[in-house]
Design a protein around this nucleic acid. Structure first.
Lengths: 229, 229, 229, 229
DNA sequence: GATGAATGAGGATTCATTCAT
DNA sequence: AATGAATGAATCCTCATTCAT
């Protein structure tokens, strides 16, 4: 108060501005997801927020920037969610499993973000790289380092780690969309287990049964066929 | 001539109509992909085809139907491409591999179809199920039957075949988008090999080395870590 | 008709297009003048014409171009009106007088064009040179040639002709605006006479009375004051 | 201090208010002239002044009034500039010449005022009479009186003085705009001389050469043509 | 059949003005 | 007094669709 005595006029309230920015982004994300980008007038967003349209434009100069900021915010929250879940364990293989579970769970809880990813690409083809992939590139390094360590320890097959992150990344990305567009028919936990099973063990039978000593029991036995020839 | 003598006036040239329909759809697909659905006026499509706008409307009653027909056509062509490639071999495992290669190659050759899939979802959220998934549901049965046979023969692990088609389907779907949006950095052939390797073998090491007798050499050995206790 | 048989579809009617273009421009000129550029929505122009707004936009891609085309049209009509009137006489001095009369009469009959000139400058400051001055530059040469001839003949004082066209041009330009903005209180014919009197004779008294042998009697005598000293 | 001791609280600083009013008007005039009335947000004026938008509104209740006050101020300054220059001489003919020089010089130094005059008319068609003409009407009387005196003295031709002020007024008004819109190609002094020459002497030749005894040498001789007949 | 002229609902954005602090 | 956050009326232009020729 005393320090502000010099200032004339209404002071800028940074707190309020940040809070309102977040509110606007959350509402916008929800509405864009529900109605699609072209069908969502800025007026609609303002109405939902009980604000004037001009106020929304004070925070985001164009509808486009509002949208892209909403996507960015979504990616930040994904990152936070994954990190929180990964921190729960120290075992690297478990960390991978946790990350995948967290990733699937995040989009399950925030289906609107999936819509935004689709819409970003559909409406803003010009933008160099979609937000999702910028985010992915920024985070992939840590997983490759972790995989490299596991390869050294002989727990993961000795193949280039990029190959693994590519395949697993694409698998998650595809799952994300399929769940959202076609509907998921199993529980999130089951789905995560099924994916991890195949990623960890593959689908082909081995001459010798697998007995791993890890927490999860993976690698189901094969049918008698293996005995045939 | 002789056979046509009965017909009075100008015969309806069904051939012409079908050919023009196809031309319109191909051009529309290209333009929608390049410019996005909202930015592609029907006028633009007509101009590119050197037709009047009204003529395009004679073939497709609305812009929406034009777009959806273009997607449908894309899916049909995907189906044809996969079937042709699968027919080249009799071995079921190889058929799976061929199908995946054909799928990836198709979208590599027709990136515009990828765009259409995205745009369909972004612009027509209301539609029950995206064309891609209708197509997928219509064709998944044959692959599940094939997998069931392989399971019986002991060549594939005894896990529910839906689990496999779900994971593999999602993986391909995700790969498709990633290739298109983020750019693919390896050759198509390499990518197919990497995916098949992980899908067939998984990423974890086995106590005992794998020696499979198939054409492709999969399942790289593990580092010395495998010798540890 | 026969020649057109090859053409498919509705033929372009160039006649109609040109007529309608002119209609739109006249209406637009009237409305812009009455209401001002910013207050004249394209919708208003369309309404007055009993056309859809989109139709107006078919002829003029932006409101700005519509406006500027209206100004151009005005200048063309001014040019035509002046030329027609000048052609009525062969005497060069009378041609000058006729041109000035035609100029004043034109803007008297078309006050809306005066408004457009003002508005062009006010709303489109960026444009290199106002339409009026482009028109002026394009036509000034012929008057300078004519004045040069009169100078040679000893009918006009031997001063640079540019000086004369500058002063007379500015005088007309100013008269134009004053008439329109402040209202003219005398008849057009009187005004033309007064202007010509001063331009031809100046305002100062001469030591010796002037007796010119031309059609118009100019150069009123001075008061006895000239006899004073 | 001592004199102010009676006053309680902060004295209303009339000085400050008047100074700030003038500052705002000058800045507004400059910006309106540069950018045009519609393109000049009140925010822009406030920014340039490093004031809050609300503060500008404390001094001028609407944007319109701000603009009109700027024009009024411009006219006042014109009046002052002309009067100062006229006071330099006692000879009435020279006073007329000085007034014309001062007028042209003023607008040469303050081109922004020319823009304001244009814009006033373009944006506020409804206003009865433009500020310029109100100013003109308020000052024209003194010049007419002066001319009447000169007519009596036989120095100016015996024609109605209104006729002279009309023509000279229009000439100056037109010159003002032409200089500003099309650019002036001669020096201010040359221009004034050329105008005065024609206003004082006209453009036509006289049977007998003119020898005036005034300070300025006006009325160039005519070519031999005068000797012809 | 083929065409393109005509239409007008719809939507992003601006900015003068108000008023709480 | 001074400020700037908030507002929403206002406006230009687009483009899917219709239909006369």
């Amino acid at each position: 108060m005393t320090a502000d005595r010099m200032r004339r006029g209404r002071p800028k309230d940074k707190q309020l501005a940040a809070r309102r920015r977040a509110e606007i982004l959350d509402t916008a994300a929800k509405l864009f997801a529900e109605r699609g980008y072209p069908n969502t007038d800025v007026q609609v967003v303002a109405d939902e927020l009980r604000l004037g349209k001009g106020t929304v434009y004070r925070y985001f100069p164009t509808k486009r920037e509002l949208f892209l900021a909403a996507v960015d915010r979504g990616m930040s929250r994904l990152h936070d969610a994954v990190e929180a879940r990964v921190a729960e364990t120290d075992d690297p293989v478990q960390q991978i499993a946790q990350a995948m579970r967290a990733y699937l769970a995040f989009f399950d809880n925030h289906p609107e973000i999936v819509e935004l990813l689709i819409q970003e690409r559909a409406e803003f083809k010009d933008r160099k790289k979609p937000t999702y992939f910028e985010h992915r590139d920024a985070n992939i390094g840590r997983w490759q380092a972790l995989l490299r360590r596991l390869t050294e320890e002989g727990r993961v097959r000795d193949i280039p780690v990029e190959r693994i992150t590519d395949v697993v990344g694409d698998l998650l990305y595809g799952t994300l969309f399929t769940n959202h567009f076609a509907g998921r028919r199993k529980s999130l936990e089951e789905q995560a287990r099924d994916i991890l099973d195949i990623v960890f063990e593959g689908i082909l039978c081995r001459p010798n049964p697998v007995h791993d000593g890890q927490g999860e029991t993976l690698g189901t036995q094969c049918k008698t066929g293996s005995e045939k020839p």
